[in-house]
């Protein structure tokens, strides 16, 4: 069964970095442009993220995500370009609609930050196996139950979707139309919900028993089968990222 994960297996420098260091990096990279909202700063961070994605050889996987938000970004440019409060200097005019420099720059600042967030998270998600990422957080004190929920979403949603197709097959076998126009599909969706939700609830109940009898609520300190692989120099790298964040903060507060 496929798992609900975007992780791309590659042999790259970025893949070798441990999940926790990457999480810290993503946090710093995402938060910094909001503390210091200059266009140059956020653009440089975005370019750095792009460089890392190139190093991780996963750029191709980001393109569909970027193209999806492209429509939103285009909207931001159009709206802000025309209607931003501080619009003064006309840049160009299209079909009698005036676009202003201030608005376009403002839109650019928002968009670059949005793209930066997107790239940073993509970097984390595309180059880190989800199980390792969750385990690394549980090791550092995230409740194991929350970790389980995150794990199970990855496994159990594909399972639910395969359950849904079994139920739909059964309904189709009894003459229900499930394919065709949008309206037919919507009509087929409603009778699907009942059995799907009910069977999922029953399964969840049973699975919770199975978890209980395997000590899921044991009061003992949890241990881990896999050792955490942390390459040398990661501690320094984490400190560097946090110092960078502190510097950004200081810059903002002083200037």
């Amino acid at each position: 069964m496929r798992s609900l994960s975007l992780y791309v297996k590659r042999d790259s420098l970025i893949h070798k970095i441990d999940p926790f260091t990457k999480i810290i990096y993503v946090f710093v990279s995402v938060i910094s442009p909001f503390i210091l909202p200059t266009l140059i700063f956020s653009t440089s961070l975005t370019l750095i993220n792009l460089l890392f994605l190139l190093l991780g050889r996963v750029v191709k996987k980001v393109l569909p995500i970027i193209s999806f938000v492209f429509i939103i970004i285009l909207t931001i440019f159009i709206i802000q370009g025309m209607f931003y409060d501080a619009n003064q200097t006309e840049l160009f005019s299209l079909f009698n609609l005036n676009f202003y420099v201030e608005g376009i720059l403002y839109a650019a600042r928002i968009s670059v930050r949005a793209i930066n967030v997107l790239l940073a998270f993509s970097l984390l998600i595309l180059t880190t196996p989800p199980t390792e990422m969750i385990e690394s957080l549980v090791r550092r004190g995230m409740p194991a139950k929350l970790g389980y929920i995150m794990h199970s979403v990855l496994q159990i949603i594909p399972m639910m979707s395969s359950n849904a197709s079994i139920i739909m097959d059964a309904q189709r076998a009894r003459g229900m139309e499930t394919e065709g126009s949008l309206w037919v599909r919507i009509k087929a969706f409603i009778p699907l919900i009942g059995p799907l939700v009910m069977s999922s609830l029953v399964n969840t109940h049973e699975r919770s028993i199975a978890l209980e009898v395997r000590g899921f609520s044991a009061a003992t300190q949890k241990t881990f089968l896999h050792q955490e692989k942390v390459p040398g120099g990661m501690k320094q790298l984490r400190i560097f990222f946090l110092l960078f964040l502190a510097a950004v903060l200081a810059w903002r507060l002083v200037l």
Partner: peptide
């Protein structure tokens, strides 16, 4: 359990919980 991606790791689930 739904939390492990391999049979090997699945066997560890209860053992990890019990420390």
């Amino acid at each position: 359990s739904g939390a492990k991606l391999s049979v090997y790791d699945e066997l560890a689930f209860g053992l990890e919980n019990n420390g």
